[in-house]
């Protein structure tokens, strides 16, 4: 007996220590999993409900966990109806044009400015940098009313009946893109990232006869892709989700972005399944976009924007 016990003790001790460790490891996952529920249940509800055919079904399922489960009569009819009842493809196209345009121009304009501020010496550079940092504290909402007045008076070009000068940017793509290109926050993110790139790179390239533009395009941009991804994500979120500005500046249906197009469903008897199908379709692209760029996002946030 004693021998057995002696030989068994170390074994069972080892075993219980390792089960203890496993349990401990599993325990560390418990809060993580509970939080997943907290952060995703509204989205799961949205997606699941988009496949439920009638308002009655959605409302009666709301009383139980069935709200999160794809149970009962499931149908894709809501999705079909979104396409037949509303101008959805047009709204989607508008949002894609506006978001892509804003991201593209914003990456170019803000990163070039940050490059000039971080690596070039020119008169007024320090002043411009401090003004840009200072504007970080101006909330977008604080300037929205004067901006509305401004864009209603800016001269624009119209191609409707030959080339003509028009008054006001209201009801255009321009008004939804151009005012949102420049961002002090984006310039700041780029600037911080560029400051960490060794200057030897530039010097070496200059000796080889490269111009400053070439250094920017061929050296700085390729090694700064994480910060480009971050700015792209932040711009995507704000541009795709913008709501107040298009409500104020866009009247015609052909130029509405997806968020404003959503209002259409609340005009008559609301079919909630249809609303959920619509919101699912406009939310999934952003989620996918973020999934693709998220690791770059974390990496560049860690290396640039957050040094205070």
């Amino acid at each position: 007996m004693t021998t057995i016990t002696e030989s068994a003790t170390p074994f069972s001790a080892r075993q219980s220590r390792s089960t203890g460790k496993t349990i401990k490891l599993w325990l560390r996952y418990v809060p993580l999993v509970l939080l997943v529920f907290f952060f995703t249940f509204p989205l799961i509800f949205m997606i699941v409900s988009s496949f439920k055919g009638t308002n009655q079904q959605i409302f009666s399922d709301l009383r139980s966990l069935r709200a999160f489960l794809p149970v009962g009569d499931l149908t894709t009819a809501n999705y079909d109806r979104v396409f037949t009842d509303s101008n959805f493809p047009r709204y989607m196209l508008n949002s894609i044009v506006i978001t892509a345009g804003t991201i593209g121009l914003s990456l170019l304009v803000n990163s070039m400015a940050a490059y000039a501020l971080s690596r070039l010496r020119w008169p007024g550079q320090k002043l411009v940098l401090s003004i840009i940092i200072a504007t970080l504290i101006i909330p977008g909402m604080a300037t929205v009313m004067p901006m509305l007045l401004l864009v209603s008076r800016l001269p624009g070009l119209s191609f409707d009946e030959g080339l003509a000068l028009t008054q006001g940017w209201l009801d255009t793509y321009t008004v939804q893109i151009i005012p949102f290109i420049v961002s002090a926050y984006s310039i700041f993110l780029f600037y911080q990232f560029f400051q960490d790139i060794p200057r030897d790179f530039d010097e070496a390239a200059l000796v080889d006869g490269a111009s400053r533009f070439q250094i920017y395009f061929r050296i700085i941009v390729p090694i700064s892709l994480p910060v480009f991804a971050s700015v792209a994500i932040l711009t995507f979120i704000s541009s795709w989700n913008s709501f107040l500005w298009p409500i104020m500046t866009v009247q015609s249906d052909e130029l509405r972005p997806v968020m404003v197009g959503l209002q259409f469903f609340f005009q008559r008897d609301t079919n909630w399944g249809e609303v959920m199908a619509y919101t699912t379709m406009i939310t999934i692209p952003v989620l996918i976009f973020f999934f693709i760029f998220q690791s770059a996002f974390v990496k560049s946030m860690a290396s640039s924007g957050v040094k205070g």
Binding site: T143, M145, L149, L150
Partner: peptide
């Protein structure tokens, strides 16, 4: 370098003057 600096920072400076700084001061005036 000065010229390149103005060319590269120029678009951002212009847009910022037009859509951030001028509405800000216009708002104070209004």
């Amino acid at each position: 370098q000065t010229l390149t600096g103005y060319m590269m920072a120029g678009p951002a400076i212009l847009l910022m003057l037009l859509f951030v700084i001028s509405p800000f001061f216009a708002g104070i005036y209004y």
